[in-house]
Design a protein around this nucleic acid. Structure first.
Lengths: 123, 123
DNA sequence: CGCTCATATGAGCACCTCTTCACACGCACG
DNA sequence: CGTGCGTGTGAAGAGGTGCTCATATGAGCG
């Protein structure tokens, strides 16, 4: 059973060491989820708007980001459930703002990477 | 035409200011693409392995990350096309390594966020 | 009080993504 | 020089994601 179907391994020691050093599954899953939230242009625009605007209502966000209010509401719900944004309600208005500064750091770091090296598609 | 269908805007000045400050479309798209690469657990494990292992071949990567070699090859191709990893060929082996340190920074920053505040799902 | 406005939500659909399966390719080794 | 091994790639299917449309909710206003 040790040499099963094709357990091809070149450097078994390194494989073991790497396996031991990998972050636990929950961390990996959480990481993927966070980056997944940042992987949509629409949500990215919303977050960029909030980075600049500080606190904005749904309709202004929709107008500024060029999206339908329904799409914005759906997107904000996702971000809300993941603690990326916070809401303040006033009458029938809902004012959204970023929950913490992590988004700004990730945003800026990614932007630096993107603008510095296009890394777009070619090979 | 000014009050068209429902161009609801509360703070027109802020909307204009925010629109002017939004990163250009290509930057937004590129950002989304970069974060999209980081939004998959499988690729995340591969990158984490390379962060620790330095340089590894496809089969070791597959063994360490618990994925099929085909899946790993596909994932590495994506990462390669986006300049996230580099290849060194030696005989029939292919040794992969990270292309730059941006991944490490994004990874660590995201990991800090995730482990510090689970931000998983609840509301 | 009934209407409208700002937002929230659910269902449905189109699209994209990731995995597996099958096979092609090049290099090493007998 | 043919066979096996490590890797690369294409097609296809399952699953997930984000949009729109329709409708609900709750607050303000006449």
């Amino acid at each position: 059973m040790s040499t099963s179907s094709h357990a091809r391994v070149v450097d078994a020691d390194r494989v073991s060491a790497v396996m031991a050093s990998l972050p636990p599954e929950p961390a990996i899953e959480g990481l993927a989820q966070v980056f997944g939230l940042l992987s949509d242009p629409g949500r990215l625009r919303l977050m960029a708007a909030l980075l600049e605007g500080g606190e904005m209502c749904v309709c202004d966000l929709a107008a500024a980001c060029g999206q339908s209010e329904s799409a914005v509401s759906h997107a904000l719900r996702l971000l809300r459930l993941n603690r990326v944004v916070k809401v303040r309600r006033s009458g029938r208005m809902a004012y959204y703002r970023l929950a913490d500064s992590h988004v700004r750091m990730l945003f800026d770091l990614g932007l630096t990477h993107v603008t510095h090296d296009e890394a777009g598609s070619r090979d």
